[in-house]
């Protein structure tokens, strides 16, 4: 069944119509799509529905009288410049890290990459020992947390 057929078959009571006007106002384009056709049918058929709609439209028109200022012309450039600046900073940080990792002397060429490799290895060993020492229930809970994080289901 397509959307249009479904909307035509929805019954619209006066009470529901009144609720629609109270919440969404008198403009049909703001009414929920599922109920719009039935509500418009009621407007066609009922004088009272038309009167209620007019009253809601009067409030809509008051709300529409409030104008707002456009964003300042420089806002877009400011946003783009800040984003660009941030990217450059991140790139600079990476360049610094790579430079540090490579080092400048033959001794640093070997020691620094080796040092960088040993840190995650040590961290892995420490975390592994800690997980192994947890009670079984708690261990399963931690594993589930890690799985959720890995699958991106958790903030």
């Amino acid at each position: 069944m397509n959307q249009q057929n479904r909307t035509h078959k929805t019954q619209m009571t006066r009470e529901r119509f009144s609720q629609l006007l109270d919440a969404y106002g008198g403009d049909a384009k703001r009414w929920p799509i599922e109920e719009r056709a039935a509500a418009l049918l009621l407007v066609e058929q009922s004088e009272e529905a038309r009167r209620l709609q007019q009253s809601a439209l009067a409030l809509d028109s008051l709300l529409d009288s409030v104008q707002i200022s456009q964003p300042s012309t420089k806002l877009r450039q400011r946003i783009l410049a800040k984003a660009h600046h941030h990217t450059e900073q991140v790139q600079d940080a990476w360049q610094w890290f790579i430079q540090w990792l490579i080092g400048t002397t033959p001794r640093e060429h070997i020691l620094r990459p080796a040092f960088a490799l040993v840190i995650p290895l040590l961290l892995g060993i420490v975390i592994g020992f800690n997980l192994a020492s947890l009670p079984e229930d708690e261990n399963r809970w931690v594993e589930e947390e890690i799985n959720l994080l890995a699958l991106g289901h958790k903030e």
């Binding site: 300042s72 877009r76 400011r78």
Partner: peptide, 24 residues
């Protein structure tokens, strides 16, 4: 989206300058 978001922020805060900061 800048204009729509700016309008939303401005109507919530009542001030276009604050809306600029929020949108940024």
């Amino acid at each position: 989206h800048m204009e729509a978001l700016h309008g939303f922020a401005q109507r919530l805060l009542g001030n276009p300058a604050d809306a600029d900061d929020i949108v940024q």
